[in-house]
């Protein structure tokens, strides 16, 4: 119980590069029932002005949620993963992620607070291109349910 406020502002090294695959974009779009041709048909995507298939907006989390582990499992943080639930998610887009993007994720601990016995961790993870430009900035609020909580 009780996350360590000393880690607020801590930034983690960039995640290993992630190459956005065309079939992964198709698979993800299909899994959420998104039939927009720009996520399935390369010629439709290119006709619409994109360089490749367009990943649906929440695809960014597929990339960031793995990279977030470096922060969530930081031993200095003291997060009990077994009590963790996803409380909030926000995306800010400079542009959509498209297939063949080669990206890395940079995560920083933005805030830690305690509400009604639950610890809340706000984690920002930016999906960046090889030049360092942010494609999508994501903010996740992770809630560690208090051990005293009665369910």
């Amino acid at each position: 119980m009780g996350l360590n406020p000393a880690v607020i502002g801590r930034q983690y090294p960039p995640s290993p590069p992630y190459l956005v695959g065309r079939e992964k974009v198709r698979e993800f779009a299909q899994a959420i029932g998104d039939t927009n041709p720009v996520s399935h048909d390369l010629s439709a995507a290119q006709a619409a002005g994109f360089t490749d298939l367009v990943a649906p907006p929440t695809f960014a989390f597929v990339i960031t949620h793995v990279a977030m582990a470096s922060a969530m499992f930081d031993p200095d943080l003291g997060l009990d993963y077994a009590r963790v639930v996803h409380g909030e998610q926000r995306f800010t887009y400079a542009r959509p992620i498209v297939a063949s993007d080669l990206v890395t994720v940079v995560s920083v601990i933005d805030a830690i607070r305690s509400v009604a016995g639950n610890d809340m961790l706000t984690l920002r993870s930016d999906v960046v291109d090889p030049a360092g430009a942010v494609i999508v900035s994501t903010t996740s609020v992770i809630v560690a349910r208090g051990s005293a909580e009665e369910e």
């Binding site: 720009v38 649906p56 907006p57 409380g87």
Partner: peptide
Amino acid sequence: RVVTDWVTDPAALEEFGVRF
């Protein structure tokens, strides 16, 4: 999809957030 199906252009989305 409520929003992206409405506008059809996925590049038109600038921000999107929810609480679970």
